Amino acid sequence: MFALNGFFIAGAVICALALVVAVVATAIRKHPDDWALIGAACTEVFLVVYGIAAAIRQGAGNAVQGDPWEFWGYLVTALVMPPVAFFWAISEKSRWSNAVLGASALVTFIMLFRMEQIWH
């Protein structure tokens, strides 16, 4: 069972925007620009807020329905991906750095979807 909530919708929108910007940048640019990098930064900020909210929800008694280690493992892994893609993009100034930013946004969305499945 999967239940939509505000955090999932916000995360899906942020990841989708970051993905679209990165795909467009891959198609038209030879190097990552500020907009593509901002997408990765926004994704990371969202994940930090999501993690804090998840800790508060769990501390308040709204327990994870699935395996808590699996949920927190997904979250930690998702938190690592945008910064890695960001630093890859600023260190390697190529068109494919934009593709890495897009892949990071897509995989982050998939992990967010899985975290919501585990929670509910």
Rank of each mutant, 00 (worst) to 15 (best):
A16K: 02
F7H: 08
G61E: 07
A99N: 03
I9A: 06
I118C: 03
S94K: 13
A36S: 14
Y74R: 01
F86P: 01
A99G: 12
G11E: 07
W119K: 15
V64P: 06
S91Y: 00
A22S: 09
A27L: 10
G66R: 12
Q117R: 13
R29F: 04
V23S: 10
F109S: 15
N62W: 03
R114D: 05
P83Y: 06
M115L: 08
L112W: 07
W119L: 09
A3Y: 00
A27G: 05
W35F: 00
L79T: 02
A12Q: 02
F109I: 15
V100L: 15
T26V: 13
L17D: 02
C15E: 00
K30F: 02
A40V: 07
L47Q: 00
A16T: 09
A40R: 12
V45F: 09
V23L: 15
A12H: 06
G59T: 11
K93T: 03
F7M: 09
F87A: 00
V24I: 13
G61T: 06
A78T: 01
V45C: 07
A85M: 05
G59K: 11
A85G: 06
E44D: 15
A40G: 13
M81R: 00
W72Q: 07
R57V: 04
S91C: 01
V84A: 08
M81Q: 01
A36F: 09
M1R: 02
V100W: 09
L47I: 03
A41W: 09
A78Q: 04
V100A: 14
F87E: 04
L112A: 12
T77M: 08
A3I: 10
I38R: 01
L112R: 14
S91E: 04
V100K: 14
V48K: 05
I110A: 15
D34M: 11
V20Y: 05
V76Y: 04
A53I: 14
A54G: 14
L19T: 14
D67P: 08
G51Q: 04
L37F: 07
M1W: 04
I14A: 08
F2H: 12
A105L: 13
F2K: 10
V80W: 05
E44L: 15
S97D: 07
A103S: 11
H31Q: 05
L112N: 05
L37Q: 11
A105Y: 15
L19M: 12
V100N: 10
W35I: 00
K93S: 12
I9L: 13
N62M: 08
L79S: 01
G39M: 11
T43E: 14
V24R: 12
P83V: 05
